[in-house]
């Protein structure tokens, strides 16, 4: 087991290092002089040179890479060109928003995905199965910005039930403790603000959670069907147990292992992949910030942001794999 963990951590470190080289090279291949791009066309030549010096852009590429890695080893990601704040702070100030959105989206995806999958598996081949599976297939086929648009049109424009963007309304000010609005508003004891934050969360979370919902429901269905074929399930039925008892108590436990892996992977993926959703709903998270940094050609921000997202994704994947190994002894045996 120890060897397995070491091997996995080693290969993750290797991938991350490779990605850092890749991202570094890509970012430095972006055409145009970044200093010129930032200062605008009318800046004087000396101002451009000065900024180049300040950013270290006049150094040879290997020297720039070593400086980048030296910073990285101290967990420094450099300074954003646009705001002149450390990239680490920029990310830290936005990450809670992304985390809250991701948690809400995954909660939606898991609750409905598991239910859909269970309904489909226990009604195999019948209308309920077809309906839930078609719904989930439509869920992965509709572009996320289309879904966001339709939801905004229906719930915000037509019926004015929910806000169409942002995290909260301006009149509510609560002290930031955890950075998660739902928690902070409760800590402040402000129920009106809590309702406001929750309302802002609904549409983005549903938009972001639809693809994982579809994946979780398909996975739950196929995994449950496999388990429901086993002898011990037949035994449980033969004992005269009700269907829901058999499914909930006997089948689900074994069927859930692959589903949990998928949930973990999707969670890691959403943490960094919410570029489109955050843009549609003006959600002040890491994804939208990264997108804005790309538009502004903010090199240190892109570099640091992508590496952060990748490291996060890899860590979540690693934790999921290790948990899987803990739950399923066969993997441990295979690795040893």
């Amino acid at each position: 087991m120890q060897q397995y963990i070491l091997g996995r951590v080693g290969s993750m470190a290797l991938s991350l290092w490779g990605l850092s080289v890749l991202i570094f090279l890509m970012v430095h291949l972006i055409p145009g002089n970044p200093a010129r791009a930032m200062l605008g066309e009318r800046a004087t030549e000396s101002a451009v040179l000065q900024l180049e010096e300040q950013l270290g852009l006049n150094e040879p590429l290997p020297a720039q890479y070593f400086a980048f890695v030296r910073n990285l080893s101290r967990l420094q990601l450099g300074r954003s060109i646009k705001t002149n704040r450390p990239v680490r702070e920029e990310i830290a100030s936005r990450f809670p928003a992304t985390l809250e959105l991701t948690l809400a989206a995954m909660a939606f995806a898991v609750v409905f995905g598991l239910s859909f999958g269970m309904v489909a598996a226990t009604n195999r081949g019948r209308a309920a199965d077809m309906l839930t599976m078609t719904t989930s297939l439509v869920g992965v086929s509709v572009p996320i910005y289309c879904l966001g648009l339709v939801l905004v049109l229906a719930f915000s424009t037509a019926f004015d039930l929910l806000p169409s963007g942002g995290r909260y309304s301006d009149q509510y000010i609560v002290p930031a403790v955890t950075g998660l609005m739902l928690v902070d508003t409760l800590l402040a004891g402000d129920l009106a603000a809590f309702r406001d934050a929750a309302a802002h969360l609904v549409l983005p979370a549903v938009t972001l959670g639809t693809v994982p919902l579809a994946i979780v429901s398909r996975m739950t269905r196929s995994s449950l069907l496999e388990v429901l074929d086993q002898d011990y399930i037949r035994t449980a039925y033969a004992k005269g147990l009700a269907t829901w008892v058999v499914v909930a108590k006997h089948a689900l436990k074994n069927a859930l292992i692959p589903v949990i892996t998928i949930i973990g992977l999707e969670f890691g993926y959403l943490l960094g992949g919410a570029v489109l959703t955050e843009s549609i709903f003006s959600w002040p998270g890491v994804g939208r910030w990264l997108w804005l940094s790309v538009s502004a050609r903010d090199l240190p921000a892109i570099q640091g942001g992508v590496l952060f997202v990748a490291a996060l994704f890899m860590t979540v994947t690693l934790v999921v794999d290790l948990l899987y190994a803990v739950v399923d002894p066969r993997i441990r045996a295979g690795a040893a």
């Binding site: 991938s15 970012v27 489109l276 990748a310």
Partner: peptide
């Protein structure tokens, strides 16, 4: 390992960075 690197960051993000380049 090279493929792992490409898969390490969410696809849309990688694609955005590549198009920017």
């Amino acid at each position: 390992r090279l493929m792992d690197m490409l898969l390490a960051a969410p696809g849309i993000l990688m694609a955005i960075v590549i198009v920017t380049v």
